[in-house]
Design a protein around this nucleic acid. Structure first.
Length: 315
DNA sequence: GTCCAGGACCTAG
DNA sequence: CTAGGTCATGGA
């Protein structure tokens, strides 16, 4: 039965934490009104609202089968069972307590790969800007976007974009200058070269689904602009390899401060620790550490700003 | 103006 | 194996 809305029953699911934890870069929270998230999954434009017993989803165009959304949100995953596999230590307890309901999504491999090629040494806000420009300039218009009769409510909600993520074939057809116009800088040649390999069939993203983690990793890092960290992000966020443990500057800081507070642990030591300490769902643990560190830093900034304001008031 | 950002890659020690 | 420079761009 075709419908343009559905309620997915879920527990322990924090949409805010999940959609704003640096896994995905195209989701926006509506300003004012009930907290709603608008984004694009494949060629579906969808609005999500957390309700008491689940997630209410609404699309502009009627949908026959909602599997794509369950898959993306991983709404059938038993989160408590995963949390039980985390090491029972102080840092993980704090991270879990601070990020209740944080999930790991399951993204389209190409969109995830391309997005993270664009992510290197960029703040998340900037990654969002680059990806938005890339999609608005070169992505296909999605039915139900602004311009479509049913889209009025989405436009009113301030949804930002109406384009699908551009395919590898589309990006492969562009010039480096066109890509650089999206402000991606030195990442442009990497994205272009990788897009060409994928578009030409010289690199098969689908095949990775059938490989073991180590083999899929070895394949991914052969792509230009893809090193260990970005490969692990793609393996975790798009292929569901829960043992992938991406180490960026935030996670490295987390490991350093939380687990080796005394003396600086060598990079080799940290890698060894990360690979063995966090269990079969290490990728989830990593995402909790990452979001925990980021929200803690954000809170500190806000607190410091407040203290500064009060001080300047009293003087 | 300075520092830094979900790095990759190349070179030298 | 580790350290350092380079790449582009803009937020804080």
């Amino acid at each position: 039965m075709r419908s343009n809305e559905i309620v997915l029953s879920v527990r322990d699911y924090d949409l805010d934490a999940t959609l704003d934890s640096g896994q995905v870069f195209r989701w926006t929270r509506s300003a004012g009104g009930p907290p709603a998230w608008t984004g694009i999954v494949g060629r579906h434009r969808v609005r999500l609202i957390r309700t008491e017993n689940g997630i209410h989803a609404e699309t502009a165009m009627p949908v026959e089968n909602w599997h794509w959304l369950r898959e993306f949100l991983q709404s059938d995953v038993d989160l408590p069972a995963i949390l039980k596999t985390f090491p029972d230590d102080e840092p993980m307890r704090k991270a879990v307590a601070a990020c209740h309901g944080l999930r790991v999504l399951r993204q389209d491999p190409w969109e995830c790969l391309a997005s993270f090629i664009l992510s290197s040494t960029k703040q998340i806000v900037q990654i969002r800007q680059i990806v938005a420009q890339l999609c608005d300039c070169f992505g296909e218009e999605i039915p139900g976007g602004p311009g479509h009769p049913d889209a009025a409510r989405y436009v009113r909600q301030g949804s930002p974009t109406s384009h699908a993520f551009p395919s590898a074939r589309r990006i492969a057809s562009l010039t480096e200058a066109q890509l650089r116009s999206c402000k991606m800088g030195f990442r442009a040649p990497n994205l272009l070269a990788t897009a060409r390999l994928v578009a030409d069939g010289k690199f098969d993203l689908e095949r990775l689904h059938h490989l073991k983690y180590e083999d899929a990793l070895r394949e991914l890092v052969t792509l230009p602009g893809v090193g260990r960290k970005i490969a692990d992000c793609v393996l975790l966020f798009a292929y569901g390899f829960d043992s992938a443990f991406p180490v960026d500057v935030w996670v490295e800081r987390a490991l350093q401060q939380l687990y080796f507070p005394k003396r600086r642990a060598g990079e080799k030591r940290l890698k060894q620790f990360a690979a063995t300490h966090f269990g079969p769902h290490a990728g989830y643990a990593q995402q909790y550490l990452f979001h925990y560190m980021r929200t803690k830093a954000k809170n500190n900034h806000a607190k410091n700003a407040k203290v500064a304001r009060e001080k300047s008031q009293t003087l």
